[in-house]
């Protein structure tokens, strides 16, 4: 879907006009935001700054703001590594906060230093360094950097980016939220399992989720690890607490099936 965006850019100093095309999951997400909030943001790259415009249901700009990208300072700025909760990852993976210049490593079995990659993390992009390809995913201040593995196609980049965008909606700083990290690590570890069925999970992380008796019907039809996880939900106050006690495989199965489980009523969100 194409949008004709006309809005004031404070940094350009006047009204600017763009045609922006959204499709696939980006469009779905945009529409979901419209449903929920009545407006939804579109970000437009202006080179040394980014303009974010909020559009309403008729495609009219309701508000806009800009933020600068100061490229010269990126390389020189020091990054601080922080220790997070141990989370399993089968991919080489870093989470970072661009504004705070902090990062945590979930797994990094690569010679290239994390900070060398982080220096390129001002926006979402594919970075080639020392013979490795790194996918830099960016949403708000959140950064997710994953070393591309053999067989990954570029469509997975878009999917992971969409997941990070969904995560950012509920957690502006993923460094402080291990459950969000665990879900994203699961996606990076099992990207081929990912479908957009997963996106609603982030909105429910802080909520109480319970399995219904319909779960009995899934016995023998989905992985026993998932059944065990769903049975355990009743012992936790929130979904994220349960996720933090789960295995990587359980999280992957949950993420993959989350939308369907909700739609069938196998789980209910309190």
């Amino acid at each position: 879907m194409k949008f004709k965006v006309s809005a004031d850019c404070q940094m350009c100093g006047g009204n600017v006009y763009h045609e922006v095309e959204l499709e696939g999951d980006s469009l779905s997400w945009f529409n979901e935001q419209l449903e929920v909030a009545g407006v939804a943001p579109i970000s437009i790259d202006h080179g040394n700054h980014v303009m974010v415009v909020y559009l309403d249901k008729r495609g009219c700009a309701r508000s806009s703001y800009t933020y600068p990208i100061v490229k010269e300072e990126i390389v020189s700025e020091r990054w601080t590594q922080i220790q997070g909760v141990p989370i399993q990852s089968e991919a080489d993976l870093i989470f970072a906060n661009w504004k705070e210049k902090k990062y945590c490593i979930l797994r990094w079995n690569i010679d290239t230093s994390p900070e060398a990659v982080l220096a390129h993390a001002e926006t979402a992009k594919v970075v080639s360094l020392e013979g490795h390809e790194f996918w830099v995913l960016a949403s708000g201040d959140n950064r997710m950097i994953v070393a591309k593995m053999v067989g990954w196609q570029r469509n997975l980049f878009q999917m992971m980016h969409e997941m990070l965008s969904q995560a950012t909606l509920v957690e502006p700083n993923i460094l402080v939220n291990p459950a969000v990290q665990a879900v994203l690590a699961s996606v990076a570890s099992n990207p081929f399992m990912y479908t957009s069925n997963s996106s609603s999970i982030f909105a429910d992380l802080k909520r109480k989720v319970r399995a219904t008796r319909a779960l009995m019907l899934l016995n023998g039809r989905v992985g026993s690890e998932l059944i065990t996880f769903l049975e355990c939900l009743e012992h936790y106050d929130t979904l994220e607490e349960c996720i933090l006690s789960a295995s990587a495989k359980q999280i992957a199965l949950l993420v993959k099936n989350y939308r369907s489980l909700r739609n069938m009523g196998v789980i209910i969100v309190m």
Partner: peptide, 11 residues
């Protein structure tokens, strides 16, 4: 769309 019935039909 009761959970049990929906799940049954899903399968």
């Amino acid at each position: 769309v009761s959970p049990e019935v929906a799940t049954l039909f899903y399968i």
